[in-house]
């Protein structure tokens, strides 16, 4: 049985958006992990946020309210490593 944890990877068009988002989520006590943007998504800026898949909607609303531009991608954590599924932009 594979133990996979569903996550979302949130990417940003610029570092400034990424840092603003991190500041916002920290202020709102949201759970997130700062990660390097996976290389398949490297057209985005280098800083990404990994969040629980369950939080995609609520965090998405927060970011939109603050006019932070972002994209979300579905992923899975298996054995402490992140795997993104292809073509799963949320």
């Amino acid at each position: 049985m594979v133990k996979g944890k569903a996550v979302a990877v949130v990417t940003f068009p610029s570092t400034h958006y990424a840092i603003s988002a991190e500041r916002l989520l920290a202020a709102k006590a949201c759970a997130y992990t700062i990660i390097p943007t996976p290389s398949e998504l490297s057209h985005q800026c280098g800083i990404a946020l990994q969040i629980s898949f369950d939080d995609v909607q609520s965090i998405g609303i927060l970011l939109k309210e603050s006019r932070i531009r972002f994209l979300s991608h579905r992923g899975t954590i298996v054995d402490n490593r992140l795997y993104l599924e292809e073509n799963t932009m949320l």
Partner: peptide
Amino acid sequence: FELGRNLMRMYLYTVRT
């Protein structure tokens, strides 16, 4: 500071994964 702190977080994440 914010940039440098996040770079460190990302580096340690990369090491641990």
